[in-house]
């Protein structure tokens, strides 16, 4: 079915290659008061799956003036028994209502059988899971009649039986289903530290043509005798190491819509907006160079 879907590339993702932030209820009033006029906003659609009420009132008002991205956490695309059909139906209704410019999910699973654990769990990356992910993505894209982006998750464990490197695995999914890649550079850094690989090597292996969005965030650090463990808690400013990886990637790949996530210990809107401004400056720099003959 992938051939019937919109083509890949930035033309399929009309959100400008500028900076956005995750939309938090704590910041509704700031946004409606006109702060962050050039930002785009990303939501977890699961938080807007009630029938009505204040969340929809705020989102409708903000959607009128800003591009919107929906970043799902509940489809469980990598489950051996497939993504949740009821959840997909709810997502479809929300996508039709708000028409987000960007739509994404994760390279992970959360549930099997009748139980779902609200987390992004690691799947072995091999031929069998490639089939499951590809089937899940195709079911979603066929239902929604549009392509989605798939995000590389933060990892704390490597399942046995993984024999395809993650960049290669995601590229294979993109080729097979027509989906794109939401490259979370903080997740690359977190996974690299936890599992012991070089984040530069990972990013060098990313086919930049597939990347339709970038995520940046902060993480927490635990010291252990076996080495540091990073927790992807989205609870602080983007660390310098992650900024450096971002700048290097944009220098190679060109600007992409870039989101700053901050989901715990939520700061005043101005602090979040200042992180987005840093990302926007990098994007503008490389946009200007792209436009230079």
């Amino acid at each position: 079915m992938a051939h019937a879907l919109p083509p890949l590339g930035r033309a399929a993702h009309p959100t400008p290659a500028s900076a956005g932030v995750g939309l938090k209820p704590e910041h509704y009033a700031d946004v409606l008061a006109g702060h962050g006029p050039t930002l785009w906003f990303e939501i977890h659609p699961e938080n807007y799956m009630g029938a009505g009420g204040p969340p929809h009132r705020y989102l409708e008002a903000i959607r009128r003036d800003h591009p919107l991205s929906m970043h799902g956490v509940g489809l469980s695309l990598g489950s051996a028994d497939g993504p949740g059909e009821r959840h997909l139906a709810r997502l479809k209704a929300l996508v039709e209502r708000y028409q987000p410019q960007l739509l994404s999910e994760h390279l992970s699973w959360s549930g099997i059988g009748q139980v779902l654990l609200p987390d992004l769990l690691p799947a072995p990356l091999n031929a069998e899971s490639l089939e499951r992910f590809a089937d899940g993505i195709e079911r979603v894209q066929t239902s929604l009649k549009r392509t989605i982006l798939i995000e590389n998750p933060s990892l704390y464990l490597t399942p046995e039986g993984s024999d395809i490197p993650e960049p290669e695995f995601i590229a294979a999914l993109c080729r097979r289903t027509g989906c794109g890649w939401l490259l979370d550079i903080n997740n690359v850094y977190v996974s690299a530290t936890n599992l012991g690989f070089d984040p530069e090597d990972y990013l060098s292996a990313v086919d930049a043509r597939l990347v339709g969005e970038i995520h940046l965030a902060g993480h927490a650090r635990e010291r252990h005798a076996s080495g540091d463990l990073l927790i992807d808690d989205h609870g602080s400013r983007v660390p310098d190491d992650v900024w450096r990886l971002f700048e290097r990637f944009v220098a190679r790949a060109g600007p992409r819509p870039t989101l700053v996530e901050w989901d715990t210990q939520i700061p005043p809107f101005a602090a979040l907006a200042s992180e987005a401004a840093k990302a926007a400056a990098v994007l503008r720099h490389w946009q200007a160079l792209e436009g230079t003959p």
């Binding site: 464990l157 490597t158 399942p159």
Partner: peptide
């Protein structure tokens, strides 16, 4: 524990993160 690659103490730390998260 045998379903994951890597050193034993790193694996148990990783499992603890997932067990805490949900």
């Amino acid at each position: 524990s045998s379903s994951f690659a890597g050193e034993s103490d790193r694996r148990s730390l990783g499992f603890r993160v997932y067990a805490n998260n949900w």
